[in-house]
């Protein structure tokens, strides 16, 4: 498989050279319970990637291994980059060795004008691939770009609490059966893949969890973007970061947002037990262990999309 970087904003790309080095000897002595969880997740993730470089059949330093970037905040429509930032991001990877993919979050009607302006910029830059995370954007891009279905298309239940505690109202057999249900995705159904194939789609995003991915070996063939390390539990217009700073606006920022999330994150009372956090409008869990099936990483058309920071 190929290694790609996911960068939610231009600042990540500007710091990419530094971020692609673990700096283990400097970092490890500083690890403590008081450390911001994001730094720890970042460090454990880069170590995990380095320990699994056999996935990419390339043991060189990571900077030389990456094949391209997925640029764009996949979570919140208020964080769409400007066309100028997109052009800047593109310039970092504007060569034949790297691929530039743009990522859209789910887009509502208020943000459609901005989304369309971005599409014009992407056409100008001759960007080929676009990730969409809602059916509206799928409708808009399917004629002009190679579409990649984002993680919002591989829906399943992702437990916020259940992994930390066993429920009493369900027997262990029922719980085991429920777990089986949540590890199977709709793309295992042939006619679902056929439907998306009919509009030129053959790549789908799957988070790094133990899903049954045997469907990737069946026709009609699909390829996987494995998103690492974060799993989205919920992303919502009702944003608790937007909400904590302003009780005058309605429960979600509609047309505009003051983007306090660029300076503020949330953790929760039981974050250390539940491994639950919020960035932007998204509550997520990191899944840091990389244990992909051989059939997935041996396919060079599959990608590991690493949200590096």
């Amino acid at each position: 498989m190929k290694l790609y970087i996911k960068a939610n904003d231009i600042h990540t790309l500007k710091n990419l050279d530094e971020l692609l080095q673990a700096h283990a000897s400097r970092f490890e002595p500083l690890i403590s319970p008081a450390m911001h969880p994001k730094y720890k997740h970042y460090y454990y993730a880069i170590k995990e990637i380095q320990n699994n470089q056999h996935y990419f059949y390339d043991e060189r330093e990571l900077k030389k291994v990456i094949k391209g970037v997925y640029f764009g905040n996949s979570y919140c429509e208020h964080l769409l980059p400007s066309p100028l930032d997109i052009a800047k991001a593109y310039s970092y990877f504007n060569d034949t060795h790297h691929n530039f993919v743009f990522v859209f979050p789910p887009i509502g009607e208020h943000k459609m004008k901005e989304a369309k302006e971005i599409l014009e910029e992407l056409k100008r830059l001759e960007v080929k691939e676009v990730v969409v995370n809602d059916f509206g954007m799928l409708q808009l891009v399917k004629e002009d770009f190679k579409v990649i279905l984002g993680v919002n298309f591989t829906k399943t239940i992702k437990n916020a609490f259940l992994d930390a505690k066993e429920p009493l109202e369900v027997s262990s057999k029922q719980l085991a059966n429920q777990k089986k249900l949540t590890t199977h995705l709709e793309f295992e159904i042939d006619f679902v893949r056929e439907f998306y194939k009919s509009m030129g789609v053959s790549r789908v995003s799957i988070e790094n969890k133990p899903y049954d991915m045997s469907f990737l070996n069946k026709k009609p063939l699909f390829y996987a973007d494995i998103y690492y390390p974060n799993s989205t539990i919920s992303h919502s217009r009702a944003c608790d970061i937007a909400g904590i700073y302003n009780d005058k606006q309605t429960y979600f920022p509609a047309k505009t947002c003051q983007k306090h999330c660029t300076k503020t994150s949330l953790e929760f009372e039981h974050s250390k037990v539940l491994s639950l956090y919020q960035e932007y409008n998204t509550i997520y869990k990191p899944h840091l262990r990389l244990e992909l099936p051989e059939s997935v990483y041996k396919n060079k058309r599959n990608r590991l999309v690493w949200e590096v920071f």
Binding site: N15, F161, D240, K263, T264, E267, F268, E269, Q278
Partner: peptide, 18 residues
């Protein structure tokens, strides 16, 4: 989750990419 989030949230500075 939505009820838990609103009752249990703790605001922290975002991690610095630099």
């Amino acid at each position: 989750l939505c009820g838990y989030a609103i009752n249990s949230k703790k605001s922290i500075e975002k991690a610095d990419v630099h």
